[in-house]
Design a protein around this nucleic acid. Structure first.
Lengths: 151, 151
DNA sequence: ATTTGTGCAAATCGTTTGCATCTGA
DNA sequence: TCAGATGCAAACGATTTGCACAAAT
């Protein structure tokens, strides 16, 4: 029950139950598509993905879904705190399945993102913001390029 | 020579000369449009602006230019290091005339950006990246929301 | 004269929306 | 049953591009 099962197959299995509960707890009906996407998103450990990519993955896994629904679902998941949107300047929007405090390495050549555990970075001395404002989140992106060959 | 002069007017004046030199040094021909945009961008201290907004400003200042040229110019300026692109997740691209090391406050309600002088923030203990990579830049965005009325 | 930049309008890309149909509780 | 979800295709907004024309060296 964990070899090369496709999301569609595993949906008939048991770990799906947790997912359904998770969705319901979040106030979302565990529909076929949401469960399938949830499976793709959360079964493989932390990941950073775009709507387009997830759509391809779902399609490739024989999950019947429309791109619009992928966008909707991604946003709904974000609203209920199951996902987090990441601000990389590119034109695309990335979603992160890791919703704990952490930051990112960005490989500029490929636009790939890699998590930096929160414990490995320290942002000190935040200047408090103007009156009446509070910090909702701090995003740190460390941009990486290939090191130039030198001593 | 500094009252309410429009860019077009000031272009006939003297501070424009520096701008032309600046552009030429950067390898860009100081054309009418580039000088006008340069004036709008750099004469007013540090600013964060979108192509669309700059286009409006230029048009409002009776500078004849097309939106496409504004986009082109903004990117050219960025390539030669006169500007910096900022990664805010919204769909729009912001350009920052402050190219020194610094970070940003982002007012989520309005999408307004405010500089944080580099000295006011300390990012400590960066975990070095995988082999062969080097840090090209560290972006920090502190997201702010209105403080909820409470004690 | 040559090279480089500009303007326009059409094309593109990611994303969103309207609406008819379908599904889960 | 029936609110809520989905699919499709058309709409969208920001940005880019192709190409004829204009300006800078």
């Amino acid at each position: 029950m964990s070899s090369g099962a496709t999301p569609a197959q595993v949906m008939q299995g048991c770990p799906v139950h947790d997912l359904r509960v998770k969705l319901r707890d979040a106030g979302l009906r565990p529909t076929r598509q949401r469960v399938a996407l949830g499976w793709l998103l959360f079964a493989k450990g932390d990941r950073h993905i775009t709507a387009e990519k997830l759509y391809e993955e779902a399609t490739g896994a024989r999950v019947q879904i429309s791109l619009a629904t992928v966008y909707n679902t991604l946003h709904q998941f974000t609203e209920v705190g199951l996902l987090r949107e990441i601000a990389v300047d590119g034109s695309k929007t990335y979603f992160d399945t890791n919703i704990s405090n952490h930051h990112h390495f960005l490989f500029e050549e490929t636009n790939a993102l890699v998590d930096i555990p929160d414990s490995h970075i320290a942002v000190g001395a935040l200047p408090e913001a103007p009156e009446g404002m509070e910090v909702s989140r701090v995003d740190v992106i460390i941009r990486l390029t290939k090191k130039v060959a030198s001593a």
